[in-house]
Design a protein around this nucleic acid. Structure first.
Length: 147
DNA sequence: GCCAACGTTGGC
DNA sequence: GCCAACGTTGGC
């Protein structure tokens, strides 16, 4: 899952312990969240910053439910087209697991393309804020963080 | 700040 | 249903 550290960083999650992953307004990303299970592990990625990359781990602590911000006109992600009787957008609750001692940068991930295989995060033009990762890819990223 | 790669919108 | 225009994302 991606976040701009200016908006919400791994340090923010560490402080909060858990958070509602609100504001996702992309159907594919939403569908990924709807398919999540409690305990699913998450790579936490910082985008739009000095060193984009995976900075830590989180996990799913609450199954998908209606994202309340879609109905709030004062919210940045307000969606006037979404009706309470038929909500468009969902979110999950995620909990802090750990912050890596070092960032596993996007550059580094691209350099490991052979080992990672078809990795959603490094696919060209991928702008999804929530995407899937295989266990093998997850394990490789974690191993890079501690190496 | 630039720009490529998207997803969405809306006219037709 | 097509597609141009537009807005957004995000690396660089």
């Amino acid at each position: 899952m991606k976040s701009e550290p200016n908006a919400y960083s791994i340090d923010d999650l560490k402080r909060d312990k858990k958070t509602m992953w609100d504001g996702v307004r992309n159907y594919q990303a939403r569908n990924f969240m709807r398919s999540m299970a409690i305990g699913d592990q998450i790579l936490f990625y910082h985008s739009n910053c000095d060193v984009p990359g995976v900075v830590g781990l989180a996990k799913v602590v609450g199954l998908a439910y209606v994202d309340p911000t879609q109905f709030d006109p004062s919210d940045k992600h307000y969606d006037p087209a979404s009706k309470p009787e038929d909500p468009r957008w969902s979110l999950v609750d995620i909990g802090f697991v750990k912050k890596f001692k070092r960032t596993v940068s996007l550059t580094e991930l691209k350099a490991r393309a052979d080992e990672l295989g078809d990795f959603a995060l490094t696919r060209t033009g991928n702008r999804l804020s929530v995407m899937s990762v295989t266990q093998a890819q997850f394990d490789l990223v974690v191993s890079l963080a501690v190496s």
